[in-house]
């Protein structure tokens, strides 16, 4: 087929593909069928107002909490990914530190309803207005725009799984110690992804994916907004934010 790289067999690629899908399935909550059933279960007007009345600090704590839960699932996804645990510990940490938030943003498209521009948050679907008290309308709007653009691609669960793996296994992250090893794993993932797309007649998808810079920009925007929040609420962060969130972003 011309797809196989000279260093890995078709069987290896097949196993890698199965592994990516299994890792994704085992670490993605809620399941796709459940998300589909609940996609019209939106917050009532009163519930939205109650969220809007919450103090900025409480809303930041809530969002940091939900984001941290999602990141913990991404860590589990990485651990189950064939080859990830064979990388040195420095590189495992580098890849997760740089990529976990990006993977969360990609995964978010699963829990996003593009028809009414809402996302699953604390049990129901919420529009941008629910997050008003965070004080970062532009960031929230950009994240929703990103989810909307991914939803327009009508990604299958398998495609989301591969996209997440490819976002995570990025040999261009600074401070990697074994860059070549990461690049080899990334290469095998790309071969497996292309094979899936060829089988499903979706080769055109690669050209329509958002550029990597868009995810990077969203992550930088998040850190900038966090810094702005900390300037407004000095001392808030150590007290109530999840330790993993502080470790990754503060």
């Amino acid at each position: 087929s011309g797809l196989e790289s000279p260093t890995c067999s078709g069987m290896e690629i097949e196993l890698l593909a199965q592994d990516v899908l299994r890792s994704h399935r085992e670490t993605s909550q809620p399941r796709a069928e459940e998300l589909q059933q609940r996609r019209w279960d939106t917050f009532s007007r009163e519930e939205v107002c109650a969220y809007q009345r919450k103090p900025m600090q409480e809303m930041w704590e809530r969002c940091a909490g939900r984001l941290t839960e999602a990141i913990q699932h991404v860590v589990e996804f990485a651990k189950r990914l064939r080859g990830f645990m064979e990388l040195c510990q420095n590189d495992q940490i580098v890849l997760l530190k740089a990529g976990a938030m990006e993977v969360v943003l990609v995964r978010m498209c699963r829990a996003f309803n593009p028809d009414n521009r809402t996302v699953l948050f604390e049990g129901k679907y919420a529009g941008t207005e629910l997050f008003r008290s965070l004080g970062c309308h532009e960031l929230v709007g950009s994240i929703f725009d990103f989810a909307q653009s991914l939803c327009a691609l009508r990604l299958s669960e398998s495609e989301v799984a591969f996209l997440c793996a490819i976002v995570l296994i990025n040999a261009n992250r600074p401070w990697l110690q074994e860059q070549a090893k990461v690049a080899r794993l990334r290469g095998r993932l790309e071969v497996a992804f292309r094979l899936l797309l060829r089988r499903t007649h979706r080769e055109g998808l690669l050209a329509r994916l958002p550029p990597a810079g868009r995810l990077r920009a969203l992550c930088s925007q998040h850190v900038e907004q966090l810094q702005a929040f900390r300037r407004l609420h000095p001392g808030a962060l150590p007290a109530a934010f999840p330790p993993l969130y502080r470790e990754l972003f503060a």
Binding site: K79, R80, M85, N90, I93, K97, L244, E247
Partner: peptide
């Protein structure tokens, strides 16, 4: 790096699933 990211390091260590 492991020192600065103890929680992440611990999560990675917990059960090589």
């Amino acid at each position: 790096l492991q020192e600065k990211h103890r929680i992440l390091h611990k999560l990675l260590q917990n059960g090589n699933s």
